[in-house]
Design a binder for these strands. Structure first.
Lengths: 159, 159
DNA sequence: GATAATTACTTCGTATGCGAAATATTCGCA
DNA sequence: TGCGAATATTTCGCATACGAAGTAATTATC
């Protein structure tokens, strides 16, 4: 157990905070969506469709970072609730375009809540300098992840 | 409605990055757990039990930030798989203590993977100064969130 | 221009994940 | 003591969420 370096403590706390922010934000969005008879993902979908117009199922999956099979289910239920409708693309008949119904569009325009609102609000209340700093550092973290972290054999200050 | 300010761009990017890191980390953990016949949450549970010893169901829920009803299901399946066992607490017979079985303990000792490993590795590769900075700023973000939450529960949000 | 490979989506089985209601136990308090 | 409030867990119904396998349509390859 040589996990007790100060760095490790920071890492633990940061991960803890991120998990907290993510799960809490989602929980809040879900609660707000519920006031309109929607679920969290459903709210996200109608806001995306409102913003970008008709989208294919897979581009929708990409944007909400979920599998096609997951989104198929979400759209099924939304179609049943008459929030959206499916339409085969004429140019490529494999594709299904998802379109807001009148009811869906009206609901979307009625709700101002953005996904992860809790988190966004907290970020906006930071001083601009810190926001920049956070943006810079997190970009770096993501870069490290993308680089495959196979370079981890060289790093390590703790163990 | 100041959606096009430079700050907004930062906020969007930060949220995007956090969501990416969170979901990707979880996906990776899940994949690693699968190599041992476990799911992501199951891996988290046996590692927690290994570290802290027997835990009540609700303290387990707190630690993994899930509802009791969710954890009940997870423990059900783990019990079926003989990874853990339930035992009523003698001091308070409402409580159920979750305990690793021999099989569960052996599996836990065999797996070195920590939850959110991808994320942790990326953090550890940051310069210590940036790690500190990140820790500080995120703490502030969380503080803001907590303030927002209590402010919200104190009043009926205008709708 | 037929066939293999690819792409877009759906279906199925299983595992979270949540909230509301039910049950069992303990605590608070008159 | 007794009884209502609080606490710990389970059960239920529903909505994600994923991966594997299946189907339909398009593209690539010869």
């Amino acid at each position: 157990m040589s996990k007790s370096s100060p760095n490790q403590t920071n890492v633990d706390a940061i991960v803890e905070t991120i998990v907290y922010l993510y799960t809490e934000s989602r929980r809040l969005t879900k609660g707000l969506a519920r006031q309109f008879g929607l679920t969290g993902p459903q709210l996200t979908v109608i806001k995306l469709l409102e913003q970008f117009g008709d989208l294919s199922l897979s581009s929708l999956s990409d944007r909400i970072r979920a599998n096609n099979s997951t989104v198929t289910g979400i759209i099924d239920r939304m179609e049943r609730g008459e929030l959206v409708q499916r339409e085969r693309s004429a140019s490529d008949r494999r594709m299904v375009l998802i379109r807001l119904t009148k009811k869906g569009r009206q609901l979307a325009s009625q709700i101002e809540v953005e996904p992860m609102k809790l988190f966004r609000d907290a970020l906006r209340s930071l001083p601009p300098a810190e926001l920049d700093e956070l943006f810079r550092i997190l970009g770096r973290v993501q870069q490290n992840v993308l680089l495959g972290l196979t370079a981890q054999s060289g790093q390590n200050s703790g163990e």
